[in-house]
Design a protein around this nucleic acid. Sequence first.
DNA 1: GTCTATAATCAGATAGAC
DNA 2: GTCTATCTGATTATAGAC
Lengths: 245, 245
Amino acid sequence: MTVQANRRFVKPPSATRHARARLTPSLPSFATVATAARRTASADAPGARARILTAARAQFAEHGYEGTRTAEIARQAGVTHPLVHYHFRTKDLLWRAVVEEALGRLHAAFDGSATELRDVGSRERLKILVRRFVRFSAEHPDVTHLMIREGAHDTPRLRWLVRRHVGALIRPFEETLAAGQREGWAKPLPRAHLLFLCVGAASYVFSATAMLRLTHELDVRAPATIEAHADTLVEIMFHGLVREP
Amino acid sequence: MTVQANRRFVKPPSATRHARARLTPSLPSFATVATAARRTASADAPGARARILTAARAQFAEHGYEGTRTAEIARQAGVTHPLVHYHFRTKDLLWRAVVEEALGRLHAAFDGSATELRDVGSRERLKILVRRFVRFSAEHPDVTHLMIREGAHDTPRLRWLVRRHVGALIRPFEETLAAGQREGWAKPLPRAHLLFLCVGAASYVFSATAMLRLTHELDVRAPATIEAHADTLVEIMFHGLVREP
DNA sequence: GTCTATAATCAGATAGAC
DNA sequence: GTCTATCTGATTATAGAC
């Protein structure tokens, strides 16, 4: 079962000599990672390392971990294959670097919501969070898609993802929801279900890009479509489908 | 982009001699396929072919098409690797056989909804369809998971899936919704968005099994959890989170 | 830091005996 | 129908020159 997914972990990363260890095991802050990435990226032109990272994000999102070939990443980044290994050593470490960078952006979109939105009532705050998440899912389908792909089974990658990122990300949502329930405007429905229901409702469209194009000839990338989805979701989440008399 | 995913289609199936061609290109009815499968399965003990099919469903659902190894399927089914190829010839044909069988079950759960539920009003009918879909997602996470995995990018597999199955599956939902909008009780929100919103909301929890266990220590397999999810979704879908005064 | 060339591994598929 | 043994091609990763 999990054995298969773990295959690549069998051979331990063998922390040998290697010029750079960008991903330290000491879990640097998001800020640190983001800055490091930016520094490298904006050095001259988008440096090779940054291009590899970008290409890798697209590939992992589209084809999943196992479906992605590092050679294809290299091709997309316009570099040769070995350079990928020079910068990231293994496919697994490259994956982690991708997630680190991608979720940094997700954090950026949500961090400080608590303080920034302090003056707004919990009801409006929740609406804002939902809309933000829809827009984020639309702008970075690769990130949510990645999480959908990984959330299915218990791999070391998932545990790392949850420990490091997911916990912090769902907190604003859950706290706002809890506030709403305390205040009485929100029904006392189970929060875990509400959370995942909302995440699924918000992001599924943007993961099923190809299917929507085939079934409804709908381009989920178009801004109008994105806003339509956000509007629909907020309306449903807050007031439901039934037209009140 | 798609080139990568299509790689395995480059070498054409080379329809040589081969004892059996279970998957004819003439698209047999679901009934035909289901019967054929059952015949083989219940012959004595669960025959090798049936065991391979079961193992393949689990593997494809868990690891996606590219992430699945036919040798692992063989191992799980307790047979040797070549037998997989004997029965299904190629990995791609095996995948199609799996989907054919799995979506046969989904059809079974929804076929005839139109007639069977004719006497029920469109509003109750929609509730029933949503609940059915939640339960189906819970009982067969592999099926929805499989569709999530394939819906992302435009492969020959996805086109086949949409043409052959998805169209028929979403029709009852869309028709009932349209009826509700005509009758006036349902708000005139865009149906495509409502459909995918609902599908995502219903099925995401059951795809993110491992993540829910890690974040909320919730076992989404438990019947109580399933019903709780169905209840929550129906309440949200129809009346929303806000407690009306 | 980036390349060419190559080693090592692994996966899908076939041949042919029983 | 099922097995053992094997081929072919593709993919990750490394060595070593520039």
